[in-house]
């Protein structure tokens, strides 16, 4: 099985590659359209700013490729947000796989809630086989200031200031706001579940 990890200008993906290596997956970091198209699974990681990332994806024509892919696809962190319609981060039109909006966390008081949302938080209302083996005591590691709104596509939610979509699913597309590669055994299980999809 060949896993393609999409290479673009959004943060450090070394940790994702190491996590896949620990799971024994054969992963390659690439922005090549053919390599991505032919891969059995695609992971779209990322950390950074939405509009800058979209400019790069357009340059590489990945903005057209990604929504057309048919193999199991997993967007992580910024990857999840970019799969949505629109992000409030610098008023950015995204890839449009999920008809969902990405919004900025605005707490009523910063005394209670800091932004970014940094640290370990639990998953609630878990659905679908991607979360097999996990329960509401499963904690994942978050670092983000923007979040995906709840929708029919949410397969788990997390509470910070309010509930937001922790993971989403539509057809062959999966997405997760937290970092599975940094979420200990829980994250490892989610990656394993994704890798075992056909």
């Amino acid at each position: 099985m060949q896993v393609a990890v999409i290479k673009y200008n959004a943060g450090n993906v070394q940790s994702v590659l190491f996590a896949l290596e620990r799971l024994g997956a054969n992963a390659v970091l690439t922005d090549d359209i053919e390599a991505i198209s032919k891969a059995d699974k695609v992971i779209f990681p990322g950390q950074g700013e939405a509009s800058t990332a979209m400019v790069y994806l357009k340059e590489k024509k990945l903005d057209k490729l990604i929504p057309s892919l048919k193999q199991p696809f997993f967007g992580v962190c910024l990857g999840q947000q970019l799969l949505c319609d629109y992000s409030e981060e610098n008023d950015t039109t995204c890839l449009g796989v999920f008809p969902v909006k990405v919004k900025k966390f605005i707490p009523e008081s910063y005394l209670e809630f800091k932004v970014p949302h940094v640290g370990w938080n639990n998953l609630m209302d878990l659905k679908t086989p991607l979360l097999k083996g996990l329960n509401e005591d499963s904690y994942v590691y978050y670092v983000h200031s923007f979040y995906c709104e709840l929708s029919e596509f949410a397969i788990a939610q997390t509470h910070y200031i309010h509930d937001f979509a922790a993971l989403m699913h539509k057809d062959n597309f999966y997405a997760m706001q937290a970092h599975p590669e940094k979420s200990g055994k829980v994250g490892e299980r989610i990656l394993e579940n994704f890798l075992s999809k056909t």
Binding site: F18, E21, R22, Y141, S183, K185
Partner: peptide
């Protein structure tokens, strides 16, 4: 370290 551990 990054190869070995899966926390930040």
């Amino acid at each position: 370290v990054a190869r070995t551990i899966n926390i930040p």
